[in-house]
């Protein structure tokens, strides 16, 4: 591990200043992504600024929605009553991710900022443009079964691994930050970038820009998150999706869909969403929606399986969100979010 100095941030301003003035400095919060990458020799900061002690842990009502402090843990947010009841997709995404121990440590700002699980990125002996710009991409000619279907470039085909980010993208969450240039609000869908020619940049945050909260806007519809993985629990998604539906009587007024595990950022599907507006929910409609959502998919050598898997997953998520099919477990829990495994083994309440 590269040697680093450690500093506990005294306040937001001091944290931002300490990182902004040192190009080799980085924030650390729960540490579950950062410490892992330090150990792998992928991240080599010379200064870690610990923001976990900053008073950014409150979850509060905010403009009819919910404001989640950057330092609230994944566990605290997942079980927060207003989130579990009104934004079950968020709780489902959180509780179907990682393990209890990791969720107890992981923060709400750190989670969407975790880095890709592309195995070549994590192995400093492999070429990887994201880790070492200009070194090439070992995944393109390598084993790319966990890689992207959408928005990839010739420089990088990695996917974003966060479950939470997919739910936040579907709900049009907003990110509050304070940085060297002052404070701003970023639409969650603009937080992550596509790889293009600069895959080493995951997000649009400036160096030293600190997330202070994640805000869920007022929302009166139904939301749901669904995830397929290689084992029943404690695994990243191969493919996932989050759905937010607002109804007008028996018809869908507005639908939002974000796909996970298929792109460098949570992948919104405006064309598919448009097919749903003003329609009555039916399985046939959802099949057409899923076909539209994956119409532009560009598979690599080993990941074409994600196209039918993702389509079927989206159809099921739409059926479950609209109530045409029951959830596999209580809303707002890991059992509702999971396909296979232990899902379906717990009785759905009512």
């Amino acid at each position: 591990m590269h040697p680093f100095q450690y500093q506990r941030a005294e306040n937001n301003g001091q944290a931002v200043a300490a990182v902004a003035k040192n190009p080799e400095a980085a924030f650390i919060a729960g540490g579950t992504s950062q410490v892992d990458l330090l150990k792998e020799g992928v991240h080599k900061p010379n200064l870690l600024v610990d923001v976990a002690g900053l008073p950014l842990r409150q979850i509060t009502d905010f403009e009819g929605g919910v404001r989640i402090g950057a330092n609230a843990t994944n566990t605290e947010a997942a079980y927060f009553p207003a989130i579990q009841a009104r934004y079950p997709a968020v709780s489902e995404a959180l509780l179907a991710g990682a393990s209890v121990q990791i969720r107890n440590m992981a923060t709400m700002a750190g989670n969407p900022l975790q880095r890709t699980r592309c195995p070549y990125f994590r192995d400093p002996d492999q070429p990887c443009n994201k880790r070492t710009p200009g070194s090439g991409c070992a995944a393109i000619g390598g084993y790319n079964h966990v890689h992207a279907l959408f928005g990839a470039s010739e420089a990088c085909v990695a996917t974003h691994p966060s479950d939470l980010a997919v739910a936040l993208a579907a709900l049009d969450a907003r990110v509050q930050t304070t940085g060297p240039q002052g404070s701003r609000t970023i639409a969650f869908t603009d937080l992550h970038r596509l790889p293009g020619t600069t895959p080493h940049l995951d997000t649009t945050l400036a160096h030293g820009e600190l997330i202070t909260s994640i805000d869920l806007p007022a929302f009166a519809g139904r939301s749901h998150y669904l995830k397929v993985r290689e084992r029943a629990s404690y695994a990243y998604a191969l493919a996932s999706c989050a759905v937010a539906l607002e109804m007008d009587g028996p018809k869908i007024k507005r639908a939002r869909i974000a796909l996970g595990g298929v792109a460098h950022k949570p992948w919104r599907t405006p064309a598919a969403e448009a097919l749903l507006a003003g329609q009555r929910p039916t399985e046939k409609l959802f099949q057409a929606t899923a076909a539209a959502a994956f119409a532009d998919a560009k598979p690599l050598e080993h990941n074409a399986y994600k196209i039918p898997m993702g389509r079927n997953l989206l159809v099921r998520a739409l059926l479950e969100t609209s109530g045409l099919q029951p959830l596999a477990g209580p809303a707002g829990t890991a059992f509702a979010a999971s396909v296979g495994g232990m899902a379906g083994q717990v009785a759905t309440p009512n």
Binding site: T32, L48, A52, Q101, I102, M105
Partner: peptide
């Protein structure tokens, strides 16, 4: 519960 392998002692 927390993982001591991903926790820096200083933190």
């Amino acid at each position: 519960s927390a993982l001591s392998c991903l926790t820096l002692a200083v933190m």
